[in-house]
């Protein structure tokens, strides 16, 4: 059933991007929509199959907060790059995590990586490996504000 939804969504998306009404183009579009639906079907066998992400207002509020964090850490990193002494003290450490569901994990790991200055190098069941340009970044992650916000989303 959800393949039908994907099919309709892809068709609408294709129509939005193309907007042509020629027979050949329409045929190619139909072909590509069917092909992508088949790809989705194939990929559903990976990692426990089809799961639905609940998109709510909380997620968008979190993304807004994340963008603000990205801006703040970018400013710190830009200052560091233009400093003639290049004051970086890289660390590569384990970060214990309490996020449980696959969505929470993916969101947390991606949020860490998206923020400049911190980089997730490995994702395990109960911990991540984090590379930081400065120990302060790791301390901030250990403070757990980001994790708390993600856990409170309930996805």
């Amino acid at each position: 059933m959800h393949y039908l939804r994907i099919l309709l969504f892809l068709a609408a998306f294709w129509w939005f991007l193309s907007g042509y009404l020629l027979a050949l183009i329409l045929a190619l579009g139909t072909l590509s929509v069917l092909l992508v639906t088949w790809f989705v079907h194939r990929m559903d066998r990976v990692e426990g199959g089809y799961q639905r992400l609940r998109v709510g207002l909380g997620l968008f509020r979190y993304l807004g907060w994340l963008m603000w964090q990205v801006v703040l850490s970018n400013i710190a990193l830009v200052r560091c790059i233009w400093d003639p002494a290049l004051p970086i003290r890289p660390v590569w450490k384990r970060l214990d995590t309490r996020v449980a569901t696959p969505f929470e994990k993916a969101l947390y790991a991606n949020s860490i990586t998206l923020t400049p200055g911190t980089l997730t190098t490995d994702v395990k069941d109960d911990h991540f490996m984090i590379h930081c340009l400065d120990p302060a970044g790791l301390q901030e992650l250990k403070g757990g504000e980001m994790e708390q916000r993600i856990r409170s989303l309930g996805i």
Partner: peptide, 18 residues
């Protein structure tokens, strides 16, 4: 400028995220 590969990933992140 960054000294090793992992530090360079952070630097590349500046251009791509902001």
């Amino acid at each position: 400028r960054m000294p090793d590969f992992f530090a360079r990933v952070h630097a590349a992140g500046v251009t791509e995220t902001l």
